[in-house]
Amino acid sequence: MLYSIFIDPFVQMAGAPDLLVQTIWEGTVSGVLYALIALGFVLIYKASGVFNYAQGIMVVFSALTLVGTYQKLGGLGFSGPGAAFLALAFALLVMFILAVTVERVVLRPLVNQPDIILLMATFGVTYFLIGFGEYVFGGEPKQMIAEQLFLPKGATEFQMAGGFVQLQNIDVAAAVIAVIMIIGLSAFFQYTRIGRALRAVADSHKAALSVGISLNQIWIVVWFTAGIVALVTGIMWGARSNVSFALEVVALKALPVLILGGLTSIPGAIVGGLIIGIGEKLGEFYWGPLVGSGIESWLAYVIALAFLLFRPQGLFGDKIIERI
């Protein structure tokens, strides 16, 4: 028993390094996508202190808007890359309208309420978006318009150690785009005026207000940024499978990523995503058969829990200081 837990999996790993690399790569890709969702959470939590449960559904909703608009345009006789980018612009507009609406209707009346009330309000947003998205675009799974957006498809294979490793091109693209986006966001936070204002708000709402930063404007910016992140995540995830409300489950996977990295840390979201993604895939592949497969469904949470026991604020989170 101990042998099959502690020794056998490592023997397997050493015996077939190509499989190990393949598994780690798959873990990395899903980790990057978890990290992207977690990034949306972190942005909003930092700036407004809202634990935005709706982030997962925003991913689905934005992707649905994109694909649905493209189909509507197709019905009018437009298609090809032009229409696809038109749909992309429209999806961005919708995310902006969503950001303004959420700020007006939900955040502004609920300012200064306890965290749990705001969390519940984002549940309301979630329900509303599920109903609205299905009502407008229909609930059936849709094909992502990956080709029209010039996303690569197919796979690359390369030889190694007596086997081969297969990389889906779309996954490579996803990883590259994620890295670009994270660098872009960091630069945006670091060097622009709005970025500085955002960091000020994240530090202290009151102090930010007192130096003349408009909270309402910052909230809109932050929710819109989270909307853009959601749209990119939706495109990537949709290109790997389909666009449907089943993606909502993926959002729940982002939660352990989030707390593992720390609720307030952008690098934390990335590192957490990679740890969870790789750990989950390795665990499922090498240790899963021992207990009957399917441990992927809870392994992520247990990994996060194990880390939290040693660092209750997550790996990179702000230290929680409690005073009487």
Binding site: L110, Q113, P114, A121, G124, F128, I130, G131
Partner: peptide, 19 residues
């Protein structure tokens, strides 16, 4: 779908009116 939308909207309205 309408039911989802109404329940979602009612939760938000309810939280605003009486948290």
């Amino acid at each position: 779908h309408l039911r989802y939308m109404i329940v979602g909207a009612m939760i938000i309205v309810f939280l605003i009116v009486e948290p």
